[in-house]
């Protein structure tokens, strides 16, 4: 005899109302309402005005620089971040633990502090910058400076995403490849790197997304010349200083949308690879 039964609420640990209520309330006040303000400001903007703002050469140059340098920085971080993560996990060498702890430095250091430190070292009179300067290479007040700062802040994202992946890497898989006659190079290219690909992609996108919005560590080293070394974040600040709130919002909207899309892409990457390898997220 089948009868329809309605399900009762499950007994729960105490505190649901208080914790859930406070979480939603605080999230709404601190994050969602301000976010909504930006969103509404952008979509209520006149379309022609929006296009005019965004197609201003200075804006285009800033966006090109921001996206280009962020992309390149993330790419460089993938190379050096992978090497770093691999060395830190697989090899033993002096000061390894110290270096491992230092990876998080860009996250722990206030961006303004990193900014002046990088600017000082890579300026044409600085510890490092003074060497390539005579050769005509400017490591500060140039787009190269922007790149250096963006490499700096994106670095931990690549390393920290790759480390657990390398740790989880089944070494028996590599041994199996070797036992089947593959050379070490073949093993790395055909077995190791493909299995690290999801982590590499995730690390890349995280570093890229972070670089897009970076401000503090860039502005000191960049020189901030309009059309040349001015990043999008700085342009938002200049627009605000000119009291052009609509213009600032338009650039912010584009930048934020791009960042969120990229982060959504990470989710999709994770979902795709988990489905393929049958792993649980």
């Amino acid at each position: 005899m089948r009868t329809s039964r309605t399900s009762c609420k499950r007994p729960q640990l105490p505190g649901w109302g208080l914790t859930f209520g406070f979480t939603i309330f605080y999230l709404t006040i601190v994050v969602l309402i301000p976010l909504l303000a930006l969103f509404l400001k952008s979509i209520t903007m006149d379309w022609n005005e929006f296009v005019a703002t965004m197609s201003h050469p200075r804006v285009l140059a800033a966006i090109r620089l921001t996206f280009g340098a962020s992309f390149l920085a993330a790419l460089i971080n993938v190379v050096f971040g992978s090497i770093t993560a691999w060395s830190l996990i697989r090899y033993r060498f002096p000061l390894r633990k110290l270096l491992d702890a230092l990876v998080d430095l860009p996250l722990a250091m206030p961006t303004a502090v990193s900014g002046i430190a990088l600017a000082t070292i890579y300026s044409h009179t600085g510890l490092v910058g003074s060497h390539p300067f005579p050769l005509g290479i400017k490591t500060a007040n140039s787009s190269l400076g922007v790149l250096i700062a963006l490499i700096f802040i994106g670095f931990p994202f690549v390393v920290r995403t790759l480390q657990p992946a390398i740790e989880d890497l089944d070494q028996e898989m590599e041994q199996a490849a070797a036992s089947l006659g593959a050379t070490r190079f073949q093993t790395v290219m055909k077995v190791t790197i493909p299995s690290l690909l999801p982590a590499i992609l995730t690390g890349f996108t995280l570093a890229f997304a972070r670089a897009l919005g970076e401000y503090g560590s860039v502005i000191f080293i960049a020189g901030n010349l309009p059309m040349k070394t001015e990043i999008a974040s700085l342009l938002i600040v200049s627009r605000l200083d000119e009291n052009d709130i609509a213009g600032a919002s338009a650039i912010a909207f584009v930048l934020l949308t791009a960042t969120l899309l990229i982060l959504l892409l990470i989710q999709a990457i994770g979902w795709y690879f988990n489905r393929r390898t049958g792993r649980q997220a």
Partner: peptide
Amino acid sequence: GMDTPDAPSTATA
């Protein structure tokens, strides 16, 4: 008491 039974249906004879 860590789980609750379904509420009995009144439709049951």
